[in-house]
Simulated assay, not measured.
Amino acid sequence: MSANGQLQATVAVNELLGALLPGAKKIVVSDAGESQVRGNHKGSKAKMIDRNLKRMVELRERDEVSLKKRQKRLKIRAIKANRASREKTEQAAKLKVLEEHRKCGNLSAKERKYLNKLAERNAKKVGAWELEEEDREELRELQQRIISQISIDRSKRGQTRRKKIKAFREEIKPGAADRRYPGLTPGLAPVGLSDEEESSDED
C-alpha cells in the first residue's frame, strides 16, 4: 500500500471513529509510513477499532440503563401523585356522602365509627395547634429573658475588655518606658557612648 493510500485510509478511519466515538484517540501516520495511535494504545488498527466499538457499546448500554432508571423513578413518582390525588378525592366524596347520611339521620354503625375516629383525629390536630398558641406567649417571655441576659453579659464583657485595654494603654505611654530604664534607648543601646569610645575599648 502506498503512503498516500495509507494516509487516506487513516483519515477515513479517524473520521469514522470521530463520528462513532467522539473523543476517541486518533491514528497518526508517521514519516516512515507507520501508523501510530495518539496516546498509550498499542496494537493494530483493527484492535483499536474493536476496542473503541466495544467501548461505544458499553457507553450505550450504560446510557440505556440510566435512562430506564430515570424513567422508572418518574413513573413511580407519577403513580404516587395519582394515588394521593385519587385518595384525596375519594375521601372528599366519602365525607360528602357521610355528611348527607348524617343530615338524613340514617348513619350506619360503621359510618358513625369512622366519623368519630375522623373527628378525634381532627380534634387532636386542632388541640395541638391551640397548645402551641397558648405556649407561644410563654415561649416569647423565655426568649426575651434569654436575649436580655445575653445582651447584659455582652455589655459586661465589653466594659471589662475596654477597661483592660485602657489600663494597658496607660501603662505603655510613650514617656513611661524612658523613665523606667534610664540610659537605654528604645533599641536598648546604651546612651552616652560614641562609636570611637567603643572601638578604643575593643583594642
Rank of each mutant, 00 (worst) to 15 (best):
K54L: 09
V11F: 00
R55P: 00
F168G: 02
A32P: 03
D203A: 12
I27G: 09
R62C: 04
G105T: 03
D63K: 07
V126D: 09
S194N: 07
A177G: 02
K72C: 05
R180L: 15
R121P: 05
L20H: 00
E198Y: 12
L98W: 08
L21W: 04
R179Q: 13
R83F: 14
V65C: 10
D135P: 00
D63R: 10
I76V: 14
S2M: 07
G183E: 02
K113C: 08
K45F: 06
N116R: 12
Q71W: 14
L74S: 12
R77K: 10
K68Q: 13
L20N: 08
P174F: 07
K113I: 02
P190L: 11
A46Y: 02
N116P: 01
D135E: 11
K110T: 12
N40G: 08
D63C: 02
A128S: 14
L184Q: 01
A177D: 14
A84P: 03
A167F: 05
D153E: 14
Q8I: 13
S155N: 12
A189C: 11
V126M: 09
E64N: 03
V57S: 11
P190T: 01
Q8P: 05
R157F: 12
S199N: 10
R77E: 15
V65I: 15
R112I: 07
K26Y: 10
R102H: 03
E141D: 09
R136Q: 12
E87W: 08
W129Q: 14
N116V: 09
T89H: 06
E198T: 15
R73T: 10
K69G: 00
N82H: 06
R70L: 09
K125N: 06
D63W: 06
I150N: 09
R161L: 13
G158H: 11
K103A: 06
Q149V: 00
D135H: 03
R136K: 11
G127N: 13
K166A: 12
L53V: 10
A128G: 13
